[in-house]
Each structure stands twice: as structure tokens, then as C-alpha cells.
């Protein structure tokens, strides 16, 4: 026999799974792991973007660098490049940490409500199994 309340609950759960796949994927991570994973992605992306910026700047000044290749103060330029890279990395990592934290917290709130409904469904199954078991015991006793 079809249980209407169970169907309603399962429908709501299915709709949540369809609309919030990202939240379900996020549920597999601890908060710290998720933030660390995104920090690694941020570091890689900022490094890649910075290298491309350096390429653009380098190609712009290529004639100067070729001319002054021997007399260039590489230490000064190196410190400048690394300094800007470090500042950029710090800013983007901080932004990434704050936003990932917010995203994780709001996602977890939605996921908790999903898990509560899942638990309700589990209890429904348990109650149905117990009911069937009682009926079987009663018929066996008769």
C-alpha cells in the first residue's frame, strides 16, 4: 500500500537533491578540509594569473631586458616581483577563506534540515518494518 506522507517526504528530499547538488557534495568535507582545498585552488590560480601578468609585462619591456641583460639588478627586481606576489596571494587567500567559510556554514544549515528529513524517512521505514514484524508474530501465534 502506498504511504502518502512517505511519498511527500521522499519527494521533498528528491527535489532538494536535484536543486542542491553542490550542498550534497560539500557535505562530504569537513570545514577545515574544504577551506584548505579552496586555498590550494586559490594559490594555484593566483600563481598562474600572476605568471601570465609577468609574461605580459615582460614582453612589453623585452627590448629593455635584452639590452640591459648583463647590468640589470636582478635582486631588486626579484624582491619586487616576489613582494607583489606575496601581497596578492595574502589578499586573495584571506578573501577565499572568508567566502568559503560563509558558503560552508550556509550550506551546512540547509544540509542539516535535509538530514533531519532523511532521519524521519529512516524512522518511517523502521516503524513499517516493526509493524510488519508484529503482524507476522500475531499471525504466527494464531
Amino acid at each position: 500500500m502506498v504511504n502518502n506522507s512517505k511519498i511527500k517526504l521522499m519527494t521533498k528530499l528528491a527535489i532538494f537533491e536535484k536543486r542542491h547538488r553542490f550542498d550534497l557534495q560539500l557535505g562530504k568535507y569537513f570545514k577545515g578540509d574544504y577551506i584548505k582545498f579552496n586555498l590550494i585552488k586559490t594559490v594555484l590560480c593566483v600563481t598562474g594569473g600572476y605568471i601570465l601578468c609577468l609574461l605580459l609585462v615582460g614582453f612589453y619591456n623585452i627590448e629593455y631586458f635584452i639590452k640591459e641583460a648583463i647590468t640589470l639588478d636582478y635582486k631588486k627586481y626579484g624582491i619586487k616581483i616576489l613582494g607583489i606576489y606575496a601581497i596578492l596571494l595574502l589578499i586573495f587567500c584571506m578573501i577565499s577563506m572568508i567566502t568559503c567559510n560563509e558558503v560552508f556554514v550556509t550550506s551546512r544549515k540547509r544540509l542539516n534540515k535535509y538530514y533531519r528529513k532523511l532521519k524521519q524517512l529512516g524512522e518511517m521505514y523502521t516503524d513499517a518494518e516493526n509493524e510488519n514484524k508484529n503482524i507476522k508474530d500475531e499471525t504466527a501465534n494464531e
Binding site: 593566483v46 598562474g48 594569473g49 601570465l52 601578468c53
Partner: peptide
């Protein structure tokens, strides 16, 4: 290249 930089950042 500019699009890639914008996307990465």
C-alpha cells in the same frame, strides 16, 4: 590571455 587572467583572479 587577458580573459584567462580575469578568470583566474
Amino acid at each position: 590571455i587577458v580573459y584567462i587572467i580575469l578568470w583566474l583572479f
